[in-house]
Simulated assay, not measured.
Amino acid sequence: MKIVELRLCNFRNFKEQQFFFGDINVIFGKNAQGKTNILEAIYYLCNFRPVKTTKEIEIINFDSDFSYIKGIFEDNGDLIDREIYLTRDGTKKIKEMGFEIKKVKDISNRIRTIFFSPDNLSLVKGSPSVRRRFFDSLISEIKPAYYNYLKDYFRVLMQKNKLIKNKDAKFFYNRELIEVFNDKIIDFSSVIVKMRLAFLKKFIPFVNEFYADFSGNDTLIDLKYNSPIAEVGEFSIDEIKLKMKEEIKRGYQGPHTDDYIFLSGGREVKRYGSQGEIRTLVLSMIFSRGKIIYEYAGKMPIILLDDVLYELDYNRRQNLLKNDYGQLFITATDIKNLPGEILKRASLIGLPKEG
């Protein structure tokens, strides 16, 4: 799957612009010229939501009342035409092949993308909640049942917390009902933890494969699931439930507090890794996500890399760009430091663009 043409009208800083793409695309120019906006437009067409804002109308050009985006995608020789029209009053229309789409979920996973920006470094450097969101999102994408367990878990957890905080004594002291909630929480938690551990076994070999490609060395990355019940991977669900019950009595709150810790040579990357090592690790995670999606869906996602070359040395840049991962987009302020062989293969898009 790849995008071959993009038309923007009143999108961010672009009043009227058209772009054509190849397999490797390098978008270059000075800051504030719209490099990231092109990547965001592609992401928006595929996911129907902006990358960095919850207010969709912010993508509309300041001097306009509407924004229009059109992309033509190619899938094994077949062309897919997709359009999005958005107005300042919040009206949003999506069309595919000329037909208006009423339910986005019907086409939401047809064209997949992965977006990298410097903000993604928080996958290693940030709080546990950032890592949980990353893995919860990815596992849910390939195992929809996981999303349902997660949704049910948080629903029951919220109900229990609401009950405990209720000032009405007859509810507050209803220990029987609290125990019912606890049993449900244990049921859902046990499945969630087991599915997470099973997924990590599949994920970490991909991370090491890409890390070796990008770094050019044989350093192995280890991924530790940080939880009081992390050792239950081979346990049955019933055994996990017993362990979960014991740990909850000791104060364990549940899988919504667990963490993922990356180690290199036995040392925690978050604390001791260099900027280059952290960036290489995050890139390896992003590309591993793409590989797993490919195994699941049979199609490589479009990979959008914003400002990825910053703080990567020449060898890491070369190793990143020499491999074939499907359609690739990269932004850069300067193309002088890109490998010559890549520049020969790439479609070069310089900004500002005339016309």
Rank of each mutant, 00 (worst) to 15 (best):
K270H: 14
T280M: 05
G254H: 05
Q253Y: 09
Q253S: 13
R279G: 01
K270A: 04
R289N: 04
K270E: 07
S274W: 00
G254T: 09
P255T: 09
R250S: 13
L281K: 08
E277K: 11
E247M: 13
P255S: 09
I248T: 14
G251Y: 04
I286R: 09
K270N: 11
S264W: 07
G251I: 10
V269D: 05
E247W: 08
F262D: 06
R250I: 08
S284G: 03
G290H: 03
Y252L: 04
R267Y: 08
D259Y: 06
L281M: 07
Q253M: 12
S288I: 11
I248C: 10
S264A: 15
L263F: 14
Y260V: 11
G273N: 11
L263I: 08
L283W: 02
I278P: 00
M285R: 04
G276P: 01
D258C: 06
D258M: 02
F262N: 13
H256Q: 14
P255I: 09
S264P: 03
I286C: 10
P255E: 10
G254M: 06
R289D: 03
I278D: 03
V282W: 00
G265A: 15
R250V: 12
G290W: 03
Q275G: 07
R279F: 03
T257V: 13
H256S: 10
G266T: 14
G265D: 12
H256G: 07
L283K: 04
V269C: 12
R250F: 11
Y252P: 02
E268P: 00
K291H: 09
